[in-house]
Design a protein around this nucleic acid. Sequence first.
DNA 1: CCAGACGTTGTT
DNA 2: GTCTGG
DNA 3: CCAGACGTTGTT
DNA 4: GTCTGG
Length: 259
Amino acid sequence: MISLASMCGRYAITTPIEAMREIFDAVGGPEFQPRYNHAPTLMAPVVKTVPIFDKGERTGHRRVIDLARWGLVPSWAKSVDIGNHTINARSDTVREKPSYRGAFRHHRCLVPADGFYEWTTATAEKGGGRKQPVWIAPDQLAGFAEPLFAFAGLFDIWHSLDGTELHSYTIVTTDASPSLANYHHRMPVILDRAGWETWMTGTPAEAAALMRPHDGPFRVHPVSTAVNNVRNDGPRLIEKVDNPDAPPPKPKPVQGSLF
DNA sequence: CCAGACGTTGTT
DNA sequence: GTCTGG
DNA sequence: CCAGACGTTGTT
DNA sequence: GTCTGG
């Protein structure tokens, strides 16, 4: 039996930017290298809406892809340090927390991802508490509508003392859906295409109604612990491994030990 | 009034 | 920025 | 999320 | 144990 795992603290975003523009009906966004091991504090694409003005009149809005840093830094922060603790925002308190409430009212965005990782902890009798990473992705063969996820995100803009602008984001979390509860009790909020526009441009109440567990269907399989180290990257990280319970490599014997 | 926090995960 | 604690 | 650091003196 | 960096 598997218990507890982590949260959405690592994911993959490898879909080419042109494909993302098409899927999200968005403009902009720089080229970027595919990332199979996207981690907090790194930059990744987010989708936001910006108003369109014509002769001073607001005539509508359009979707734009931007890069932002994972770990939300509120506009009032004195430093980026807070971003180490704001990679996720709990959906049940996001409207009250000082770090998130402003962004929830005015800066909701989509966070594209091909899938995400969780680290499950095997029970003592099975794995002695080792953490096993698993890969979770949309199962299109089983009916998931999109080739990638759109996480519900919030962004903000922070100005450093020298005036540099930092765009940053966080991923909203909720309780795990039934199909993922075996791996962990929390999960990121995933939005279907039908919810994208409302999440970004609806009222706060309308957006809040979208913050609920998505029940897939998902593909889930164990992957190598190579993903643990953020310096590792590449498609092999999401490949299924067959011996997830194999013990970790033995530490090298130390010369001069008592044994 | 000023000073200080402002966050998430998972923990026996 | 805005709220809480002292 | 995990990995890795976590300290001081003085020093060409 | 706890914080920083990626």
